[in-house]
């Protein structure tokens, strides 16, 4: 195998990674359309409480603020993991991914606890259109975070087994995009759902 061919091979690999990055961006934009429509649906359905509880009766700003902190910090720790990928520090990558996972899991725990509390109070998603929209919007984000957590586990295993190879690093890059995207979506939820619900 000639040297020239090797570089050709590498060029193809680099192109493939670039294509995957663009494809993933497009996926995220499509996901953003989903969130945008769920936000719009939520906004339309705020009055649809059908005589049931409103956001003011239900939302706990402390809980939402804590969730926000967990998710924002987890984005930062993921940033550290990405930096460690660049320096090729395998154990640091795994360490930062583990911290990110714990923060994300904490977020999911808080959200599930909030949901369970509301359902126990009789304010479940089948109570009113408003609550359907709330649970669906916030829940869709929560499902995304859960998927992200699974993804972190899988890629951690790959880092351990395969090392920071080019394909693994490129997967970590896309996971990073996904994780930061969820942060942005959450900022939208916090400012459109929780804040006005309390004002």
């Amino acid at each position: 195998m000639s040297v020239a061919h090797m570089s050709e091979h590498e060029r193809e690999e680099a192109e493939t990674r670039e294509q995957r990055a663009l494809g993933f961006w497009l996926y995220l934009m499509g996901d953003a359309v989903i969130f945008a429509l769920l936000f719009a649906t939520y906004a339309i359905m705020i009055p649809g409480t059908a005589g049931g509880p409103t956001g003011k009766d239900l939302f706990d700003l402390n809980n939402a603020a804590l969730e926000t902190v967990l998710l924002l910090v987890s984005s930062t720790t993921f940033g550290f993991a990405s930096l460690s990928v660049r320096t090729g520090n395998r154990s640091a990558v795994i360490g930062w991914l583990a911290v990110t996972f714990l923060l994300g899991a904490g977020f999911v725990f808080l959200e599930v606890r909030e949901f369970a509390g509301m359902i126990a109070k009789g304010a479940g998603p089948d109570r009113s259109g408003f609550l359907s929209a709330f649970f669906t919007l916030v829940g869709t984000h929560g499902v995304h975070v859960t998927m992200g957590l699974l993804w972190i586990l899988i890629l951690s295993a790959q880092v351990m087994l395969k090392g920071l190879t080019a394909p693994v690093a490129s997967r970590l890059y896309r996971l990073g995009l996904f994780w930061h995207f969820l942060d942005i979506a959450w900022v939208g939820i916090f400012s459109i759902v929780y804040l006005p619900g309390l004002l």
Binding site: M45, G48, D126
Partner: peptide
């Protein structure tokens, strides 16, 4: 993604008893 949302919410109405598009309950 828009039809995914439309059909997804309709599915939630039908499976989980939600009220996105029902006559009553908001």
């Amino acid at each position: 993604p828009a039809i995914t949302v439309a059909c997804g919410l309709l599915a939630l109405d039908r499976l989980a008893g939600m009220h996105f598009f029902t006559n009553a309950h908001g």
